[in-house]
């Protein structure tokens, strides 16, 4: 019955956000805006390069595939952390933290909301990619789902770290929600190989699951080699980052309870 209670509490929070989105179409529009905008920019760039032929023509699929995958990581992180921010903006956090909702259940609900944002945000972009550029990422087969899954996991790890930081340092840190993941873009090597980075930055890039996902994507689209190796490394790194961020979250949550910042955040 404990499991049923846990699922009911997770559903309570998911229901809360679904009810919110049902009444707020601008929020729904915001889900798709980023992915569609990026797809248009990089899609037309890819088309321009393709039209001019030469060696650059071959990278069109990498550009469009890369941006679609990277946007899913961004959507995953935003879905998690913006759902948390909604509780702060509505001054509802105080009620949640004195209810029987466990912190791990809060995290589980935020992950569900993250997945829903990924679906709602990416489906229009995927359809547009097919319509405008005749690009279907699923021609790579079911492995695409593994790429998306890895990037979603990375989004959760980043979001968990940001939420932990907000718990400890207050809502003034909410700007991080829109900046941290973008800051990781150059090191994620979405459009270029890790080898293209300056040598001192390469070890940092290789600590990110995203860099391995995109190395894997390039392997799948161009060379066909090392795909599973890169995917395995990305998955292992994701598990490590998630475990580390869960510890940081737990530490900061308890510190916020000790220092009284949870009360200030909840009002």
């Amino acid at each position: 019955m404990a499991g049923a209670g846990m699922i009911r509490r997770i559903w309570a929070l998911v229901y809360r956000h679904l009810a919110l989105y049902r009444r707020s179409w601008p929020r729904l529009l915001d889900f798709a805006y980023g992915p569609v905008l990026q797809l248009l920019i990089w899609g037309f760039t890819a088309r321009f390069l393709a039209l001019h032929g030469g060696a650059l023509a071959g990278i069109a699929a990498l550009l469009i595939g890369g941006i679609l995958l990277w946007e899913s990581a961004l959507a995953s992180q935003l879905g998690f952390s913006v759902s948390f921010l909604e509780e702060i903006w509505s001054r509802n956090l105080g009620h949640l933290f004195v209810s029987p909702l466990r912190p791990r259940e809060l995290i589980a609900a935020l992950i569900v909301m993250s997945l829903l944002r990924v679906f709602a945000g990416m489906i229009p972009a995927l359809l547009l990619a097919a319509l405008l550029y005749a690009f279907n990422i699923f021609t790579l087969g079911p492995i695409v789902l593994l790429l998306f899954a890895n990037l979603a996991m990375m989004g959760w790890a980043v979001a968990l770290g940001i939420v932990a930081f907000i718990l400890r340092h207050g809502a003034g840190a909410e700007g991080l929600v829109w900046t941290v993941m973008f800051g990781l873009t150059p090191l994620s090597c979405v459009f270029y190989p890790v080898a293209a980075l300056p040598a001192p930055l390469r070890p940092l890039a290789l600590l990110l699951p995203s860099a391995h996902v995109f190395e894997g994507l390039r392997a799948a689209l161009i060379t066909g080699g090392r795909f599973w190796h890169e995917l395995g490394v990305a998955f292992a790194l994701n598990l490590a980052w998630l475990a580390l961020m869960a510890l940081v979250f737990r530490h900061n949550f308890e510190a916020a309870r000790r220092e009284g910042t949870l009360v200030a955040l909840g009002e």
Partner: peptide
């Protein structure tokens, strides 16, 4: 088995009264 009310902690403004109560009803089982 407890509960709490304060004018300084709000409930989500965009949710209807019934939706808000549903959320907390589910949370408290």
């Amino acid at each position: 088995r407890m509960n709490f009310a304060s004018p300084y902690v709000a409930l989500p403004a965009r949710l209807s009264v019934a939706e808000n109560l549903r959320v907390y009803g589910h949370l408290y089982g």
